[in-house]
Design a protein around this nucleic acid. Structure first.
Ligand code: SF4
Ligand code: SF4
Lengths: 138, 138
DNA sequence: TTTAAATGCTACCTATCGGTGGTATTTTAA
DNA sequence: TTAAAATACCACCGATAGGTAGCATTTAAA
């Protein structure tokens, strides 16, 4: 009942960047040293976030990644979607195929509250909502 | 943001059994045909649930699995714990190691509500709470 | 008594996820 | 001008989750 490690990494990186007002550009090496995420794997994740248009890469010496759009426009759900294929393949814990509120499985009534709370967070929270005073490293 | 497929299977099987008052003993072959869960994999899962003491196996012809304790005593969280190793290894979406309410990460305030809703369901709902009139097959 | 239908167990296979290696390309500081 | 520091890309590797094969054992119906 948790995110993939890859999504964890992506969210950690972006929330770290979002709460670092003293800096605009972040190299993979810097993030790697700060957050202890494997360097090579991190480059792969950053490239995915870049291809998804969340961050922009500037190549060459003194290059790195910076945000490509306003923090308030980057929702958690998009971050997950950017790095995780099949992120939405089955939206429910039990993964029934032909269910709905009229034909629910036995767990449906109990799932509604967690489901809506999760959706509220994933769809409602953006990087602009994060507090810079929080701890930012593992 | 979902359960493992194995946990899905386990919960589906037990909720199917729990909402089948007309029958006490379920062979793997029967469950396999009803729920379309791979036969051999299902035997493995049933053996795990049996070893966890949730169901009891009767061997031999006309044998199968039946509940080994009251439905009201089987919580969702135990079902998951029975089939998933490391089920609780990191209880949080972001998996920070040294965080708490005083030293939270930037997402902590938004995670509290989903977290408590999930816990409420996993710890609060038992097989006795399920409605036999629900759909029970995928 | 035989045989079919069931579980018990172990070893293996396969796909996916997390992670690594190596090399090419771009850019700027020295 | 050169070398260092950065991203881009591709192929592979290792671990784990999901799934299969095969055979031994148990039991009751026929
Ligand atoms: S009925 Fe509800 S809880 Fe059950 S599988 Fe469908 S969406 Fe999920
Ligand atoms: S601070 Fe809260 S949300 Fe963040 S990793 Fe810890 S428990 Fe999870």
């Amino acid at each position: 009942m948790r995110l993939s490690k890859t999504s964890e990494y992506a969210i950690r990186v972006l929330s770290f960047m979002a709460t670092s007002p003293e800096r605009q550009v972040f190299s993979v090496m810097f993030i790697h040293q700060e957050l202890e995420i494997p360097y090579k794997y991190l480059t792969k994740i950053m490239r995915m976030l870049s291809q998804a248009g969340m961050v922009a890469a500037t190549q060459g010496r003194e290059g790195g990644f910076s945000f490509a759009k306003p923090l308030a426009s980057i929702k958690l759900t998009e971050i997950v979607a950017a790095v995780e294929k099949n992120a939405d393949e089955s939206p429910c814990i039990l993964g029934f195929r032909y269910c709905n509120d009229q034909k629910p499985c036995a767990l449906h009534p109990f799932w509604l509250k967690p489901k809506s709370a999760i959706d509220e967070m994933m769809l409602g929270v953006t990087l602009a909502d994060l507090d810079a005073k929080s701890i930012r490293k593992v």
